[in-house]
Computed example of a mutant assay.
Amino acid sequence: MIKIATYNVENLFDLKKSGYEYKEYIPNTVSQWNQKTYDIKIKHTAKVIKDIGADIIALQEIESLEALKDLKNRLKRDGLYYQYYAIADAKNTTVKVALLSKYKILYKKETPINATFRYRNILEAKLDIDGEPLYIFVNHWKSKGGKENERVLCAKKLYQRIEEIGFNNNIIALGDFNSDYEENKRLNKWHNNTNGITGINNILHTDELTTKASTALTCKDCLYNLWYDTAEGNRYTYKFKKRKEALDNIIVTPYLLKNKNFHYISGSISHFTTDYHVVKGKINRWQMSRKKPKKHLGKGYSDHLPLTAEFLVK
Rank of each mutant, 00 (worst) to 15 (best):
K76T: 14
K47Y: 10
L59D: 09
D55K: 11
A67I: 03
Q60E: 12
E66P: 01
I62A: 10
K43P: 00
K50W: 06
K69Y: 06
K50M: 06
K69V: 14
N73M: 12
E66R: 13
K41R: 13
I56V: 15
K76E: 15
D51R: 06
I56C: 09
I49T: 03
D55A: 12
L68V: 12
L59Y: 07
I52R: 01
L68I: 10
S64C: 10
D39V: 02
E66L: 13
H44R: 15
L68G: 11
I42H: 06
E63T: 10
D39G: 12
K69W: 01
N73W: 12
K41T: 01
D70T: 01
S64Y: 05
A58Q: 12
L71I: 03
K76Y: 11
K43T: 14
D39L: 11
E63N: 08
L59F: 05
A67Q: 06
D39E: 15
D70E: 07
D70S: 01
G53K: 05
T37L: 04
L59E: 10
I57T: 08
L71N: 02
I56R: 05
L65D: 14
K43E: 15
E63C: 03
R74P: 01
N73C: 06
A46M: 09
K69E: 15
K41D: 04
I62H: 02
I40A: 02
Q60M: 13
L71P: 01
K43G: 03
K50L: 12
K50E: 10
A54K: 04
